Amino acid sequence: AQASVVANQLIPINTYLTLVMMRSEVVTPVGIPAEDIPRLVSMQVNRAVPLGTTLMPDMVKGYA
């Protein structure tokens, strides 16, 4: 199964992502692939992302 990117903490709206904020986990539904974690660093979330939430492409500015 493919691992997705999951929030490792509460990520406030407009926060620039860093490695410590994200982890990879096999979840349903599938979100942003874990292999894209390096690409996500320094990208901004466009909403608050609670701890344990799967990151979806529409949550990250400029990802989709």
Score class of each variant (00 low, 15 high):
residue 1 A to S: 10
residue 1 A to W: 05
residue 1 A to Q: 07
residue 2 Q to Y: 13
residue 2 Q to D: 12
residue 3 A to P: 14
residue 3 A to Y: 13
residue 4 S to I: 01
residue 4 S to R: 02
residue 5 V to S: 04
residue 5 V to R: 01
residue 5 V to Y: 01
residue 5 V to D: 01
residue 5 V to G: 02
residue 6 V to R: 04
residue 7 A to W: 02
residue 8 N to R: 08
residue 8 N to C: 03
residue 8 N to L: 11
residue 9 Q to H: 08
residue 9 Q to D: 11
residue 9 Q to E: 12
residue 10 L to M: 13
residue 10 L to K: 09
residue 12 P to H: 08
residue 12 P to I: 04
residue 12 P to M: 10
residue 13 I to A: 15
residue 14 N to V: 02
residue 14 N to S: 08
residue 16 Y to I: 06
residue 16 Y to P: 14
residue 17 L to N: 00
residue 17 L to R: 00
residue 17 L to Y: 01
residue 17 L to S: 00
residue 18 T to W: 03
residue 18 T to G: 07
residue 19 L to C: 05
residue 19 L to E: 06
residue 19 L to I: 15
residue 19 L to R: 06
residue 19 L to A: 15
residue 22 M to S: 00
residue 22 M to W: 02
residue 22 M to H: 00
residue 22 M to G: 00
residue 23 R to A: 05
residue 24 S to P: 11
residue 25 E to G: 09
residue 25 E to V: 05
residue 25 E to S: 07
residue 26 V to M: 12
residue 27 V to E: 02
residue 27 V to P: 02
residue 28 T to M: 09
residue 28 T to D: 15
residue 28 T to V: 12
residue 29 P to N: 05
residue 30 V to K: 04
residue 30 V to T: 14
residue 30 V to H: 09
residue 30 V to R: 03
residue 30 V to S: 14
residue 31 G to C: 03
residue 31 G to L: 01
residue 32 I to N: 00
residue 34 A to V: 10
residue 36 D to G: 06
residue 36 D to F: 13
residue 37 I to Y: 02
residue 38 P to H: 15
residue 39 R to P: 03
residue 40 L to T: 01
residue 40 L to C: 03
residue 40 L to W: 01
residue 40 L to P: 00
residue 41 V to R: 06
residue 42 S to W: 06
residue 42 S to G: 08
residue 42 S to T: 09
residue 43 M to P: 00
residue 45 V to S: 13
residue 46 N to C: 03
residue 46 N to T: 13
residue 46 N to A: 11
residue 47 R to N: 09
residue 47 R to L: 12
residue 47 R to S: 10
residue 49 V to P: 01
residue 49 V to Q: 02
residue 49 V to S: 02
residue 49 V to R: 03
residue 50 P to S: 13
residue 50 P to W: 07
residue 51 L to P: 14
residue 51 L to Q: 15
residue 51 L to R: 07
residue 52 G to I: 02
residue 53 T to W: 15
residue 54 T to A: 07
residue 54 T to H: 05
residue 54 T to I: 11
residue 54 T to E: 02
residue 55 L to W: 01
residue 56 M to E: 09
residue 56 M to T: 10
residue 57 P to W: 09
residue 57 P to S: 06
residue 57 P to C: 06
residue 60 V to H: 00
residue 60 V to D: 00
residue 61 K to R: 14
residue 61 K to Q: 12
residue 61 K to W: 10
residue 62 G to L: 13
residue 62 G to Q: 15
residue 63 Y to G: 04
residue 64 A to Q: 14
residue 64 A to M: 10
residue 64 A to S: 12
